[in-house]
């Protein structure tokens, strides 16, 4: 930085907060997936095939998740049907 640069307005390079925010989101998401059982993707795929026998839906319209509590696990299945 030379003498005159000192008085110039500086470009905003404060990007660390952006990095932190992006990391918090992606890390939380990946941790969530890490705790899911291995069979989940296969289960989701088979469910899609079964439902498609009756209703045409796209891949992202079936959501499968497992929520674990201390005493029990809940398999949560969310199917969105297309609008008529």
């Amino acid at each position: 930085m030379s003498f005159f640069d000192y008085f110039k307005s500086k470009k905003d390079n404060r990007t660390a907060s952006v990095a932190k925010e992006r990391l918090q989101i992606i890390v939380a998401h990946e941790r969530g997936q890490r705790e899911q059982p291995d069979y989940l993707p296969a289960l989701q795929k088979e469910l899609l095939e079964v439902i498609r026998k009756y209703v045409q839906i796209s891949d992202d319209m079936v959501q499968v998740e497992v929520d674990r509590n201390d005493s029990c696990s809940v398999l949560e299945l969310n199917v969105t049907l297309p609008e008529k």
Binding site: R14, A16, A19, L23
Partner: peptide
């Protein structure tokens, strides 16, 4: 200068 994640940021994540 706010250009790099701080120790506290990385510890928190």
């Amino acid at each position: 200068r706010g250009e790099m994640l701080s120790v506290a940021d990385v510890e928190e994540i």
